[in-house]
């Protein structure tokens, strides 16, 4: 990958890095951090779903594994949070490889693959809720000790920059994938698996590589979530909400594009925040409006935005 390939990502990173210099309001930074964590989870989904065409409905399995791994290793074994964060990524990637191996080897595609991933995530959620090791239904509280060595910061700005750096890294990784042999083969498998195999593409290996990478990135999002909110329970970590978030953002913003998940996550969450603050008086009405707008956005997707970016940034 050359600088020419990478500059839009770097430009995005630089502009976004200026935010804490202008904004000090806690709620806004809070919102930005949460949105960026979702960007990361969505970018993970985008690699498998957007580029590989394998629509997972259970990315919670990876998000939750990253979150729980970070939490449990810290709380129960006193491991340094930076180490637990990396361990969470590795474990999530391994879970991805196992789920991928089991489902791709048996030739599951399309809605069957979606259902199997959903089932895996649900099994994880039920298990995490039941065993004492994970804190059970009460969840797992990471003790507050705001020192940088603990991956906890007194002010939100520093955490924001770390999350942003990881998002930029994921974007660069995606861009590099797009330009690589693996990326070309992955897209070929998405477009037509039989034809790809005839051209020497080992479809199983390519899909396994994709789900492993995808799971690792979404696992990183989980680890960041745990580290920021200092609390994990089974509905947060393995809940359906994050599976939906992870797939909704790329689909709305443009699946199979580098910036799709970022655009989607920002649009979705600005929308959610806006409806919440505009009509706060009747309980639940914001969700109704959010739901209606969501239906409209899915029905009339803002495809022109990613398409415009892509047209300017082809080669």
């Amino acid at each position: 990958m050359t600088l020419r390939d990478a500059w839009p990502v770097l430009a995005f990173g630089l502009v976004a890095a200026l935010l804490p210099a202008f904004v000090t309001a806690g709620t806004l930074l809070n919102f930005a951090i949460f949105t960026l964590i979702l960007c990361l989870a969505a970018q993970g989904w985008n690699i498998l779903g957007g580029y590989g065409g394998q629509y997972s409905f259970g990315h919670a399995a990876f998000f939750g594994t990253g979150a729980y791994c970070a939490g449990i290793l810290q709380v129960r074994y006193g491991v340094n949070p930076y180490v637990t964060f990396l361990a969470g990524i590795a474990l999530a990637a391994a879970v991805g490889a196992v789920i991928g191996f089991l489902s791709f080897r048996s030739g599951l595609r399309g809605s069957y693959f979606a259902l199997v991933t959903l089932a895996f995530a649900e099994v994880f959620r039920v298990l995490a809720n039941a065993v004492p090791f994970t804190g059970g239904a009460a969840g797992l509280l990471i003790p507050l000790d705001a020192r940088p060595v603990n991956f906890q910061f007194g002010e939100r700005g520093s955490f924001y920059l770390i999350v942003l750096a990881l998002v930029v890294l994921a974007l660069l990784l995606t861009r590099a994938l797009e330009r690589s042999r693996l990326g070309a083969q992955l897209v070929a498998v998405r477009e037509n698996e039989e034809a790809a195999r005839a051209l020497g593409v080992d479809a199983l290996r390519v899909k396994l590589a994709a789900i492993t990478l995808s799971a690792g990135i979404t696992g990183a999002a989980g680890g960041l979530y745990a580290q920021y909110f200092l609390y994990v329970d089974s509905t947060i970590a393995y809940g359906t909400w994050i599976s939906v978030e992870a797939l909704l953002a790329p689909i709305i913003g443009g699946a199979g594009t580098v910036f799709g998940p970022v655009v989607g996550a920002i649009v979705l969450h600005s929308l959610a925040e806006a409806t919440r603050s505009l009509v706060g008086r009747i309980p639940g009405i914001d969700l109704v409006i959010y739901g209606i707008v969501l239906i409209l956005v899915v029905r009339f997707p803002p495809r022109r935005l990613p398409a415009l970016i892509r047209a300017r940034w082809r080669r």
Binding site: R179, S180, R181, A184, Q185, V187, A188, E191, N192, E194, A195, A196, A198, L199, G200, V201
Partner: peptide, 28 residues
């Protein structure tokens, strides 16, 4: 080749043929 043509529909002609070429050439 396939009797019923199997193009990678969303890709350009260049990218279609490049998928085949990637078999023996790692660099894009």
């Amino acid at each position: 080749t396939f009797q019923i043509v199997q193009p990678f529909a969303g890709l350009s002609v260049r990218e279609n043929i490049a998928v085949g070429a990637f078999l023996r050439h790692k660099r894009r």
